[in-house]
Design a binder for these strands. Structure first.
Lengths: 112, 112
DNA sequence: AAGTCTGCTTGTAAAATGCAAGTAAGTCAA
DNA sequence: TTGACTTACTTGCATTTTACAAGCAGACTT
């Protein structure tokens, strides 16, 4: 994951932040499936590994797209939630869903 | 660049095809700046390197998002053009532009 | 006091990327 | 007709990122 912006183009800058194979899947899990905890993200069918997930959650928090909070009084139990900035990625995900469903065979709206 | 689909989710599948730091920038150059030749893509401010560009053009052609044709009677001069399938990525790019302009400081619509 | 649950970290091999240099096929100018 | 030039790549190699497996730490639970 690159940190610096390669240009001032909004597409390039967006890709610098969220343009990899995992980040938007974490956002998807939060936005469409209401997932909030580390173990829940691990259950998604794509099979993200724990080190990548920890790294992406950290970066997303640093970017301000999600927030992390301790979950009630349970120990070491974290709640990840989308910020308004994170929620505003919905049109991007919608566009990817529409394109994928139309152009990639055997894609379907998943249930979990 | 991965080739296989990790799941049947349209978002995940789309990211498997176009979810890297360079592919959508090549599409952008064709869609918004009318670029068609190898050397033109190299001129973009992000500075893609020649091996990555060659690889992405090849993958995009294999996916059916672009076509490659010899340019008139000039030698070794190729024209890359978006197919209908490639053009249909416009809403995805539009969504990224909108999000980037709103949420990333110092992004602007570029001129070249 | 021992085991469990959750959320990570660490180690290492494999893959992708970045950078520089080189190559090949044709054109053009002298 | 040869030697430079243009365009579109390919190759080699160092660096970075990813994938996979294993381990660990703190709080609870029995």
């Amino acid at each position: 994951m690159a940190q610096l912006h390669r240009s001032s183009c909004p597409i390039a800058c967006s890709l610098d932040l969220i343009g990899d194979r995992w980040t938007l899947l974490v956002i998807r899990d939060m936005m469409f499936f209401g997932k909030q905890r580390f173990e829940e993200f691990l259950e998604s069918p794509e099979g993200i590994s724990t080190n990548i997930l920890a790294n992406r959650l950290k970066l997303l928090e640093e970017m301000g797209l999600i927030t992390k909070q301790p979950y009630s009084n349970h120990p070491r139990r974290m709640n990840y939630e989308l910020t308004e900035q994170g929620k505003s990625l919905r049109p991007v995900l919608k566009a990817l869903i529409t394109w994928g469903l139309k152009h990639i065979p055997d894609t379907t709206i998943p249930q979990n």
